[in-house]
């Protein structure tokens, strides 16, 4: 399995659990899923990178694109990531100053406690999840 995507609702957020490798081959799948979620109404999205084994520049580009897309419609994208080897990638590229990052999904849904990025989490009451787009 190279990339697995599964969406769920929790605490007013749409959480996208990502597992496997995000690279030049698989990143388009992530892009399409994130676009579908936003078009389905999701506004406060947490991308859970806890089970991501590999992340490259293409994946970073997709995440930046999703962040811009969400902010363009008044939403926000948060990242949950506790893996040092991935955090290093965000630091090297300076993207740790762009994304609102949390060490875990639980920390993200707790309303911003422990956040280290530039934004302020603002959970939406309805979360905006599209059931059709939430299928794993």
């Amino acid at each position: 399995m190279e990339l697995s995507l599964s969406a769920r609702d929790a605490e007013g957020y749409l959480i996208l659990d990502v597992a496997g490798e995000i690279d030049v081959y698989t990143a388009p799948q992530l892009r399409e899923r994130l676009i579908a979620l936003v078009e389905g109404g999701a506004r406060h999205v947490i991308v859970n990178l806890d089970r991501v084994e590999f992340l490259d520049s293409t994946g970073l580009g997709v995440l930046v694109g999703a962040l811009k897309r969400l902010r363009g419609v008044g939403g926000e994208l948060f990242l949950a990531c506790g893996q040092e080897r991935l955090l290093k990638i965000f630091r090297i590229t300076g993207l740790d100053r762009v994304f609102t990052m949390f060490p875990s999904v639980e920390a993200a849904t707790a309303g911003g406690q422990g956040g280290s990025g530039t934004g302020t989490p603002a959970p939406d009451a309805d979360g905006g999840a599209d059931p059709a787009a939430s299928a794993g």
């Binding site: 892009r31 490259d56 520049s57 293409t58 970073l60 580009g61 997709v62 930046v64 694109g65 811009k68 897309r69 363009g72 419609v73 990638i89 090297i92 590229t93 300076g94 993207l95």
Partner: peptide, 19 residues
């Protein structure tokens, strides 16, 4: 609201070189 794919590609190239 609709990021230009070319912009996303430019971001990727920039991140690639930074990495």
């Amino acid at each position: 609201a609709s990021p230009d794919p070319a912009t996303e590609e430019a971001v990727t190239v920039g991140m690639r070189l930074a990495l």
